[in-house]
């Protein structure tokens, strides 16, 4: 599936996709461990899955709808109660636009 000399996963890049900084030490440990894990999961390529439908979940329900009616929901103030920082009922985050 891949060249054994060329690691398939670039842990630092993938961590960036996941919006998670990694220290160099962490990246080194995870790189080795994840290469090992991927080597194991590659056994799935031994199987012939042509024509097999994928299973996303195991229950026989799809598109569950309810009446389009207003129902009680969590009050705004309660939803804000856990915010690390809020002002005027809004979550405060660092400035995005200059």
């Amino acid at each position: 599936m891949s060249d054994p000399h060329q690691p398939e996963i670039d842990v630092k890049y993938v961590a960036h996709l996941a919006r998670m900084h990694l220290s160099d030490d962490e990246a080194e440990v995870f790189q080795e461990q994840l290469e090992h894990i991927l080597e194991h999961v590659r056994q799935l390529s031994d199987l012939d899955v042509s024509g097999v439908e994928p299973t996303a979940h195991a229950v026989p329900v799809h598109n569950v709808f309810r009446e389009d009616a207003v129902d009680a929901s969590l009050p705004h103030e309660q939803a804000m109660d856990n915010a690390p920082q809020s002002r005027q009922g809004l979550f405060v985050v660092p400035r995005i636009l200059e």
């Binding site: 960036h16 919006r19 998670m20 900084h21 856990n82 915010a83 690390p84 920082q85 979550f91 985050v93 660092p94 400035r95 995005i96």
Partner: peptide, 18 residues
């Protein structure tokens, strides 16, 4: 770190998430 739980300050939102 935006809506609940712990937050580590960052220079912009992406840096803060990371």
């Amino acid at each position: 770190g935006v809506r609940y739980g712990a937050r580590e300050a960052g220079s912009d939102p992406l840096d803060q998430y990371g």
